[in-house]
């Protein structure tokens, strides 16, 4: 977010140096440190908006659960907590690899940086595949669907369509964040391959890393709320 491509300002008078060595900050900042701090602050503010977005969702969950606890308890019992736990582990691992990517960028380990970006991407893909193949697809087939599309025969509370609405809504919005993250990792990988990141300049790696952590944290809340509380 808000990082300036390294080739924007001047073409680097020193031959054969990677772009991250010759990076020049955007002209309206006094120095690169200010630019880095500003970008980081921008990302944190953006994360604050994400937290508030999901807080709204959690409040909806709380209110609906209070109104219809029986629907939520039965609905929740139809989820397989093992897939939820497995995906939690997958995402936590990806949080580790993305943190390691930032460390590699800071220490100039280009190989490690690229490896960690690829690993994080693979873990994100795994999360989505598990979600779609083992969770979404069977539920879709069984009619465990939101509101008007609900056709699951073995319901116990007439308000279960509401539960499925929140389940699909919450996990869907979270999954869309994962997809955005994957796009960001592709972008990071391309830039890392060009040598844009190093000890002097790794703003984008740090920013995407922070974003990925918030995506994980949201899941850390969603997992017990949807799968575990009975």
């Amino acid at each position: 977010m808000a990082s300036i491509p390294a080739d924007k300002h001047g073409t680097g008078s020193v031959e054969n140096l990677p772009p991250h060595e010759t990076y020049r900050h955007a002209e309206h900042f006094r120095n690169a440190a200010d630019e880095f701090d500003a970008a980081k602050m921008g990302v944190w503010l953006f994360l604050a908006t994400e937290v508030l977005l999901f807080s709204g969702l959690f409040v909806f969950y709380g209110v609906m659960r209070m109104l219809h606890p029986e629907a939520f308890i039965h609905g929740s019992s139809l989820l397989d907590w093992r897939w939820g736990l497995f995906n939690t582990i997958v995402l936590l691992l990806s949080s580790f690899t993305v943190a390691d990517a930032v460390r590699c960028a800071q220490s100039g380990d280009q190989k490690g940086l690229k490896r960690n970006i690829v690993l994080t991407f693979i873990l994100g893909t795994a999360f989505l595949l598990i979600k779609f193949i083992f969770e979404y697809a069977p539920k879709y087939a069984e009619g465990k669907l939101p509101g008007a599309f609900f056709s699951y025969p073995n319901w116990e509370s007439p308000y279960e369509p509401l539960w499925w609405g929140l389940y699909w809504g919450a996990t869907g919005i979270h999954a869309s964040h994962v997809v955005v993250g994957m796009g960001l990792f592709i972008w990071l990988y391309i830039r890392a391959k060009k040598g844009h990141f190093g000890p002097k300049h790794y703003t984008a790696v740090e920013g995407v890393g922070l974003y990925w952590h918030i995506v994980d944290i949201v899941w850390i809340f969603l997992f017990p709320m949807l799968y575990l509380i009975h």
Binding site: F60, V63, M64, L67, H68, A71, P146, G147, A148, F149, P158, Y159, P161, L162, G165, L166, W168, G169
Partner: peptide, 14 residues
């Protein structure tokens, strides 16, 4: 679009 019912009292919403 999907009638999830969260604001619809007929489906338990508010």
């Amino acid at each position: 679009l999907f009638h999830i019912g969260i604001f619809d009292p007929r489906m338990g919403g508010d």
